[in-house]
Amino acid sequence: MTTLIAVRGDITAQTADAIVNAANNAMRGGGGVDGAIHRAGGPEILRDCIARFPNGLATGDAGWTTAGRLPAKWVVHTVGPNHAAGQRDRGPLESCYRRSLEVAQDLGARSIAFPLISAGVYGWPRREAITAAIDTIAATPATSIDSVALVAHDERAYDEISSALAMTTSVRILQGVRELHRRGFHRLRVQPGMAPSGMHHRIVLTDAADPGATIHYTSGAATDFAGGIADAMTTPPAVAALILGALPRLAATNDAPEYAAWFAGLLAAVEPEHALPVSFADYFDDSAGWEIGWGSGLRYPAPPR
C-alpha cells in the first residue's frame, strides 16, 4: 500500500526516486520551485528539457528529464493552472498529480516527492491545493510506488498539510459508511464531533439494531481504527471491511433509505473541502442541524429519526 506523508524541507534535497517540478509551459526554467530545481540540478536538466520538450508542455500534463546533480534519479515536470491568471478549473490541477504519478510509475520509481503545485506564484488557494493533491494522489492507482511525499517549504504549509491528512482520514471513514449504506447496511449510524479540547475530531459508529455495538475513532489516535489501520490513502471499501469486522452483527436490512440519502447529501457537502461535520461538541446545540466545519456556522439538517 502506498503511503502519503507530509515533509518539511527543500524539494531539491529530497532523496526520492523522482521529484516533481512545478514548471511552466515553455519548459525552459523559471522562478520558484522551477528555478530552484534548475539551479540545484545544473544545466543537464535544461538541456534535457530542450531535447524532450521542443514545443513545451501543456497545462495539466507531465513528462520527465534527468535530475542532473540532484539526489533524485529523475525530475518529473508538470505545469499547473495559473489561478491568478484566471485558470480556476480544478481539473488541470488534479491532472498534474495524476499524470506525474503515471510518469513516475512508467519510470519504475518507488518514491516520489511533490511540491504543492500551483500554490505559489500561480496563486491557487492553499487549502484547496492541498485537498486536490491528497484526493488525487489517493484516487490514482500507483501500485509500484511505495511512498509519496508532499513537501512543504515552510512550517505553516507543513502544519496545514499534516492537518489535512488527519482530516482526510476522518473523511475516508465517513466514505466507508456511505459505501456500506450503498450495500444496504442502513442501520449503521454516525455521530461525528469534536473532542473537548477542540483539537481532535471524533466519530462514533453504531449499529442501530444493537446500540451497545459501537466503534470509536479519534484523530488523536492517528491511523488506528476499528482494530486496523485507516489513513488518507485507505479506500472506502477497505474502511467498510474494517467496520464490518468490528460490527459483526450489522445486517444489510436496506430498510432506511431516507437516512442513507441524508448521509449521502451530508458527504456531498463535506468532501470538496474536507470540512468535517460536527454533531456534538462542548457548548454546541445541534437543534439547528449539524455544522459543516467546526466553527464555520454552516449548518446541514439533522438526520431523519
Rank of each mutant, 00 (worst) to 15 (best):
M1K: 12
T2N: 06
T2W: 00
T3K: 10
V7H: 11
V7Q: 12
V7A: 07
G9Y: 01
G9C: 02
I11R: 05
Q14P: 05
T15Y: 01
T15H: 15
I19C: 00
I19T: 12
N25W: 10
M27L: 14
D34Q: 04
D34S: 00
H38V: 01
H38M: 06
A40R: 00
G42D: 06
E44W: 02
I45L: 04
D48H: 13
C49L: 09
C49K: 02
R52G: 14
F53T: 06
N55P: 00
N55D: 11
G56S: 06
L57S: 00
T59F: 07
G60D: 01
G60E: 03
D61G: 02
A62S: 10
W64H: 15
W64V: 11
T65Q: 05
A67R: 03
A67L: 13
G68A: 03
K73W: 11
V76D: 05
T78R: 11
P81V: 07
P81F: 05
N82K: 15
N82C: 15
H83I: 05
G86I: 15
G86R: 08
P92K: 13
L93Q: 10
E94W: 12
Y97E: 12
R98H: 13
E102G: 14
A104V: 08
L107N: 11
A109L: 03
R110N: 09
L116Y: 10
I117G: 01
G120K: 12
V121Q: 12
Y122G: 06
W124A: 05
R126D: 12
R127P: 07
I130P: 02
I130L: 01
I134T: 12
I137S: 11
I137Y: 10
A138R: 04
T140L: 14
P141K: 04
A142G: 13
I145V: 10
I145W: 01
V148L: 02
A149K: 14
A149Q: 13
L150W: 00
V151T: 07
A152E: 14
A152H: 15
R156Y: 08
Y158E: 15
E160I: 12
I161E: 02
S163I: 02
L165D: 09
M167H: 09
V171I: 01
I173Q: 04
R182T: 14
R183G: 03
G184A: 06
G184T: 07
R187G: 00
G193Y: 09
M194W: 08
P196Y: 02
P196N: 12
G198R: 09
M199H: 09
M199I: 10
H201V: 06
V204S: 01
L205H: 04
L205A: 01
P211W: 07
I215D: 03
I215S: 08
H216V: 12
H216N: 12
T218Q: 05
S219H: 13
G220C: 09
T223M: 14
D224Q: 02
G227L: 14
I229W: 14
A230G: 10
A230R: 05
A232P: 04
A232W: 09
M233Q: 14
T234D: 02
A240Y: 03
L242I: 09
G245I: 07
P248H: 08
L250T: 11
A251D: 15
A251L: 13
T253Y: 11
T253V: 13
A256P: 02
A256R: 14
Y259C: 13
L267C: 04
E271G: 03
P272F: 07
E273S: 10
V278W: 07
D282Q: 08
A288M: 04
E291R: 06
G295Y: 09
G295W: 13
L298F: 12
Y300L: 03
P301H: 10
R305A: 15
